[in-house]
Design a protein around this nucleic acid. Structure first.
Length: 549
RNA sequence: UGGGGUGUCGCCAAGCGGUAAGGCACGGGAUUUUGAUUCCCGCACUCGUAGGUUCAAAUCCUGCCACCCCAGCCA
């Protein structure tokens, strides 16, 4: 498994703690967790957190729970739970337990009552607007709620009534009693329970009060016995609150420790669930798993190998700098993986007929499946002397350093013969309609005989008699462009993000299994799939090209 | 403006007082029956900035500057 090696600063912290004997009381058994909210599909940004946590699991033999942080019933559903599990499994990660924050609701409620009894929480009748208004600003302290000094008994009675459904949504909340003058706004008596008469996808109508993240998250960690709670930078401001919650609940040491790292950003890549959901809901894409989506299911459908994603995270590293990685770095990881694993195949995107005038009959040729495996594996391809080549592999007027076919030149048909171009037929518009060549029989691919016939280059081809018509589909990932905000830009990129064109491929590709990636010589990595009954070759990533060097 | 963070090559990122790793990108060359791959070679006398401490600083100290996060009954 290709795990990130650059978790250094996190490892440094853990190593120091281990050395200090912090976890001896629990046999040095570390524990981490991956806690997505099931309100959307996992996207490529989540791979980083996944890799980091699983790296800790691997490196320290830690336990790792996949925890659904489902404390907001209005947004969550089983569909998302399932998709998250699928994505994690697709990546090849094996967690120890699947848990749900909603399974802790009873326990969390008990802790809330304890807070009340200890004078650490109170029921507040202020409206949401009033709470906002009394919270103060970045520079001004907040003012205490008039309900802040209610007695424990009264708070308990009120809180139980909240739970019993006596009050409508928004009428009351439970707040932590911390410090309305704290320079850290998160500490200004944050709401920890709100009333929401909304059924929960797992709990049904059992509850009408739901815990907030700042309360549920640290306590869920503590309940599970998490030792290291790894999260992204935006939660740094919440850490004092995280520690407060656990301390006031009275959990024994060692208590979970929150460590933050910078989240993954990729240039031009949408990375917010909110916006991705919008694309799905408003029909700009076919679904969360549309191959243009940066979701893991989208990447899977596009044909991106999980190993490439892990390599990417590993290459990018883990630090606290706010960073935006170039998309090229991801593409390179995908190419690197596919180059080693994908079978080579021939297909032409824009076919032009090439006829070999001195060839008769037909034969089978050996084609190397992947030159990187030692060139041992081959498969047979049929050759009938009449082929299609790609339109830009022929030039009427060759540019400087052109290495492909032009009238009067020799070029090798990959895995076949060197041919000499004698003539070309143009149509009324002056476009190339057919190319006529003669071949040199002694140049058959693989023949040991030495011959002094040289070719300018090698081009790929599809046999005219045996090749299959096929559709090529390019799904350009949905790219973010700051110039085009929201919807206008969603429409724009949707219009440009899917291109379809017709070409030819080897029968082997048309008949081979779905989902297997192929490298189409000199163009890119594709995988075959069936859309609406038609065989299509859909692009995963292009090959690097140095045509213009 | 209060608080919390971060500033090392175009983009990531090591570095933790001893004289700037690596990856991506880029440029040059070699090999190549994919203009792919592979392979060499080049790519920060300098670490946001200004001072200070030291024989010695990206690393320690001080000031300044820039950027990010926080005022949801979202997570």
């Amino acid at each position: 498994m290709n795990l990130p090696e650059a978790t250094n600063f996190i490892e440094q912290i853990i190593n120091e703690e281990l050395q200090a004997g912090k976890f001896e009381s629990r046999g040095n058994q570390l524990q981490v967790r991956f806690p997505p909210e099931p309100n959307g599909y996992l996207h490529i940004g989540h791979v980083k957190a996944l890799c980091i946590n699983f790296a800790v699991k691997e490196k320290y033999g830690a336990k790792l729970n996949l925890r659904m942080d489902d404390t907001n019933p209005a947004k969550e559903d089983y569909e998302y739970v399932d998709s998250i599990i699928d994505a994690v499994k697709w990546l090849g990660f094996e967690y120890d337990k699947l848990v749900f924050a909603s399974d802790y609701y009873d326990k969390l409620y008990e802790i809330a009552e304890k807070y009340i009894m200890d004078g650490n929480a109170y029921v507040c009748d202020l409206s949401a607007d009033e709470i906002t208004a009394t919270r103060g600003t970045l520079t001004q302290p907040g003012v205490n709620s008039p309900y802040r000094e209610r007695s424990a008994e009264e708070n308990l009675k009120l809180f139980r009534e909240m739970k019993a459904g006596v009050y409508p949504d928004g009428a009351k909340v439970l707040r932590a009693k911390i410090d309305m003058a704290s320079p850290n706004i998160n500490m200004r008596d944050p709401v920890i329970y709100r009333i929401a008469h909304v059924p929960h996808y797992r709990q049904g109508d059992k509850w009408c009060i739901y815990p907030m993240y700042d309360f549920a998250h640290p306590l869920s960690d503590a309940i599970e016995g998490v030792t290291h709670s790894l999260c992204s930078l935006e939660f740094e401001n919440h850490r004092p609150l995280y520690d407060w919650m656990i301390e006031k609940a009275g959990f024994p040491k060692p208590v979970p420790r929150q460590i933050e790292f910078a989240r993954l950003n990729i240039t031009n890549t949408l990375m917010s669930k909110r916006y991705l959901k919008k694309l799905v809901d408003e029909g700009f894409v076919h679904g969360w798993d549309d191959p243009r989506m940066p979701t893991l299911m989208g990447l899977k459908n596009r044909g991106v190998p999980p190993a490439a994603l892990k390599k990417f995270v590993s290459d990018v590293g883990v630090a606290k700098n706010y960073s935006v990685v170039e998309l090229a770095q991801l593409d390179e990881c995908i190419r690197d993986e596919l180059n080693r694993t994908a079978e080579r195949a021939m297909a032409v995107l824009d076919p032009v007929k090439l006829t070999i005038t001195n060839y008769e009959g037909e034969e089978e040729l050996d084609f190397e499946v992947n030159p990187l495996d030692g060139g041992t594996k081959t498969r047979k391809i049929k050759f009938s002397g009449s082929v299609y080549i790609d339109r830009d592999d022929f030039a009427l007027v060759p540019p400087p350093k052109y290495k492909r076919l032009t009238v009067g030149a020799n070029v090798r048909l990959k895995a076949a013969y060197i041919v000499h171009c004698d003539d070309v037929k143009l149509n009324a518009e002056g476009e190339v309609e057919e190319i006529f060549c003669t071949y040199y029989p002694q140049t058959r691919s693989g023949s040991a005989e030495k011959c002094d016939i040289k070719a300018k280059g090698v081009i790929h081809w599809v046999d005219a008699k045996y090749g299959r018509q096929v559709e090529f589909r390019r799904y350009k990932p949905l790219l973010k462009d700051e110039e085009y905000p929201d919807q206008d830009y969603a429409e724009r990129l949707n219009a440009e993000s899917e291109s379809v064109f017709c070409g030819m491929c080897e029968p082997y590709v048309a008949e081979g299994p779905d989902e297997k990636p192929y490298q189409l010589m000199r163009t890119g990595y594709y995988k075959k799939c069936t859309i609406g009954g038609a065989t299509v070759l859909s692009e995963i990533v292009t090959l690097k090209d140095n045509f213009n060097k």
